[in-house]
Simulated scan of single mutants.
Amino acid sequence: MEDGLYNYRCMTRHRYTGETRQSNSARLIVSDPTNSAPHILDSFERREVMASHRVELPCKASGHPAPKYRWLKDNRPLEPDTRFRQSVTGLLIERAQPSDTGTYVCEVWNGYGNAEVVGRLLVKEPLKVLVSPQKVKGSVGSQVSLSCGVTGSEEYQLSWYRNGELIYPSNSVRMTGQNRENLVMAGMAKSDGGAYQCFARHGKMSAQDLVQVILEGQKVQYFDIDK
């Protein structure tokens, strides 16, 4: 390293008087890099992105010699895709798709060791809600079961409404499932007929769907909810 063969000084000059001063000399010592195992500098545990948007999964490491990188998704080497690009700071994914959701591993290694970054990517779609069955006809005293399917997010809050009024669990009303997505009503009274809505919310996103439960000639009513 030729820069290490010379002595260096700092010289200053006064703007108005022209007087100059000089520091003591110093020598720059340039040494070869120390061999070292990779050390993670930037990582991630979870990323969320809307479908069709761009996202970066950070993975950057130091080490000497310069470490190499390899990405895996759900424990398999990442399939070649023109939307995926390894950058100096991580993995760039263009136009993210719901199928890109999964657990990603960034493997980093050189001749002196290895390290890894593990994180989960969730590609979200707009919330969609579908209640089934879409139309229910029954009689007084019967049992009615409705199911609410939600897509677009793994996490959401769910509420049930009858004719615009929030439904609460009771002796005759049960809500089952991890997010109360199943509504089971026993001993239906004639007043229990009408419009049933499932309303889902996640952050700023929301969606709903409606079905009609008709009991013994009851008139169909329509309601809209904006909670």
Rank of each mutant, 00 (worst) to 15 (best):
87 S>V: 13
59 C>F: 04
70 R>D: 06
115 A>Q: 08
125 E>W: 05
91 L>M: 12
86 Q>M: 10
71 W>Y: 14
101 T>C: 03
135 K>Q: 15
138 G>K: 00
121 L>Q: 04
129 V>T: 08
55 V>H: 07
96 A>G: 04
67 P>T: 05
79 E>Y: 03
136 V>C: 04
113 G>P: 12
121 L>C: 04
136 V>K: 01
117 V>C: 03
97 Q>V: 02
144 V>I: 14
114 N>C: 04
73 K>R: 13
102 G>M: 01
114 N>S: 15
143 Q>C: 03
116 E>M: 04
68 K>R: 08
72 L>P: 02
112 Y>P: 00
115 A>V: 01
73 K>N: 04
74 D>T: 07
144 V>N: 04
119 G>D: 11
87 S>R: 07
147 S>I: 09
89 T>N: 08
82 T>R: 13
86 Q>T: 08
115 A>K: 00
67 P>F: 01
98 P>T: 07
129 V>P: 05
116 E>T: 02
86 Q>G: 02
74 D>S: 04
66 A>I: 11
59 C>G: 05
84 F>P: 06
116 E>S: 14
110 N>I: 03
86 Q>L: 07
60 K>V: 04
117 V>N: 02
130 L>W: 01
146 L>C: 07
62 S>W: 02
116 E>I: 00
63 G>V: 01
88 V>E: 13
59 C>I: 05
125 E>A: 09
128 K>L: 12
119 G>S: 10
122 L>I: 11
131 V>D: 03
91 L>P: 10
62 S>C: 01
88 V>A: 08
140 V>R: 10
97 Q>R: 14
141 G>A: 10
71 W>D: 10
123 V>W: 12
140 V>L: 03
94 E>K: 09
110 N>T: 10
138 G>W: 08
85 R>F: 13
54 R>W: 09
61 A>V: 06
72 L>C: 01
137 K>Y: 15
60 K>G: 00
85 R>H: 11
75 N>H: 14
120 R>N: 11
125 E>C: 08
61 A>G: 08
52 S>I: 01
128 K>Q: 15
66 A>K: 13
80 P>T: 06
107 E>T: 06
119 G>Y: 08
116 E>C: 00
118 V>K: 15
90 G>M: 02
77 P>S: 11
93 I>A: 06
102 G>I: 08
103 T>V: 15
109 W>S: 08
93 I>Y: 14
77 P>K: 11
67 P>N: 05
91 L>D: 10
66 A>G: 06
108 V>L: 03
93 I>R: 02
130 L>P: 00
136 V>A: 07
83 R>Y: 06
52 S>P: 00
96 A>M: 08
99 S>D: 13
79 E>S: 12
106 C>G: 03
65 P>R: 00
103 T>C: 09
144 V>S: 03
94 E>P: 00
100 D>E: 09
116 E>R: 10
109 W>K: 00
67 P>W: 02
145 S>K: 15
105 V>F: 03
134 Q>F: 06
109 W>F: 07
69 Y>L: 01
107 E>F: 08
120 R>K: 10
54 R>Q: 13
89 T>Q: 07
89 T>L: 08
146 L>I: 11
92 L>T: 13
117 V>Y: 07
113 G>A: 09
80 P>Q: 04
141 G>F: 09
121 L>S: 03
102 G>W: 07
64 H>T: 02
76 R>M: 15
58 P>T: 05
129 V>W: 04
107 E>A: 07
113 G>Y: 13
97 Q>D: 12
